[in-house]
Computed example of a mutant assay.
Amino acid sequence: MDEAAELGNYLPLSFRSPKEQEYIEFLWDAFETNYTHAKYQFAFLAYHMLTMSFVYFNIWQIKQTRPDDFAMGLIGFSKEIEKNLLQASSPFVFSTVNERTILRFLKLIACDNGKIGTYAKLVDDRNDTAHPNGNIFFSTQAALDGKIAEILRVVDEIQNHSRPVIEHCYRDFLLSNHDADEREYPGDADQIREVLIHGNYLSQKDVEICLGFNLATLTEETGGMGIQDLHECLKSTYGES
């Protein structure tokens, strides 16, 4: 159970709507309840849904940070689906697309076909588990714990591929929000929480990437002191104590 909770570090620290947060909390509750009552098959289903939510949030960050790349990734989709995804107002809109198909967007962060095929195997496992085929694939805690360990390896791999997107996102944030007189919130902590964290569905793992950002790459940009103040505020608020 403790290892399974690690997935929470890859999920957003806050959400754009109470409904989204309620949904993620519901999935965690479903996982924990079934796990503690030895209903491992159903615990896996809830955990898989949390994992796919992680994928949706990562793809959303691509959409927000690299819109041109995201649009290119829509090649081959029908016009209706293309329109829906371009106009999506929530990461959960991606759930309208077949899970195997939505994984193709991970090519935009340099996940090759081999890796995507591995990720798609998790979708196959979910399909096998969800259908009434007479089989209990996860009848023991050990079986589910092994699958969770596999899922976490996949999640961490996708997270590592997302680094350039998060760095791009953070760089844009620093350059656009260093002046307290020209942004939504005068306080650094409020601006970080509402615009960076909340606005981009950043997870604790995403924040760790931001904390490691090389500020020296912005030395020739204006707003040096304001940029440093934002970074230090992020470190003091969301960094490890």
Rank of each mutant, 00 (worst) to 15 (best):
Y40E: 04
I158Q: 02
L27M: 14
R171E: 15
K121L: 10
F31N: 10
G8H: 09
R104N: 15
G212H: 10
A180G: 01
Q64F: 01
A180R: 08
N84M: 07
Y119L: 15
T101E: 15
I75R: 08
I24A: 01
W28D: 02
S162F: 04
L106V: 00
E82R: 06
G199F: 09
C210Q: 08
T222M: 03
G223M: 10
S53Q: 09
F54W: 04
Y185G: 00
M225W: 05
I75K: 12
M225D: 12
E208M: 07
D2A: 08
L144A: 09
D179E: 05
A143M: 05
P18Q: 13
N200M: 05
P12Q: 03
S95E: 12
V154A: 12
Y56D: 14
E150Y: 07
S53F: 05
A216M: 12
T51L: 09
E3S: 13
F26Q: 13
E99W: 11
W60Y: 11
G76Q: 02
L175Q: 12
I136C: 08
G212R: 13
F44G: 06
D112S: 09
Y201I: 13
E208C: 09
V97Y: 00
D124M: 07
T140S: 15
K83E: 10
K107Y: 02
L45K: 01
M225E: 10
E6N: 14
L234F: 03
H198E: 05
P67R: 02
E194K: 10
I75W: 10
I59E: 02
T101V: 11
L103Y: 07
E240L: 08
R163T: 12
I192A: 09
E32N: 11
T65M: 04
D181Y: 15
I102W: 03
A71P: 00
Y10P: 03
P12S: 00
C169Q: 13
I102C: 00
R104V: 00
F137H: 12
T96D: 07
N84R: 00
I197Q: 13
L50D: 08
S89P: 02
L230N: 01
L103R: 08
Q159R: 11
T101N: 12
I197Y: 13
Y47W: 04
F57Q: 08
E20D: 15
N113V: 08
K121S: 14
V165S: 02
E25L: 05
L230D: 05
G146F: 07
L234W: 01
T101L: 08
L234E: 01
G146K: 03
E194P: 04
G239K: 07
L144C: 10
S90Q: 04
Q191M: 14
S176Y: 07
F42A: 13
S241L: 09
Q64D: 06
A130Y: 08
E184S: 10
T51Q: 03
R153F: 13
I24R: 05
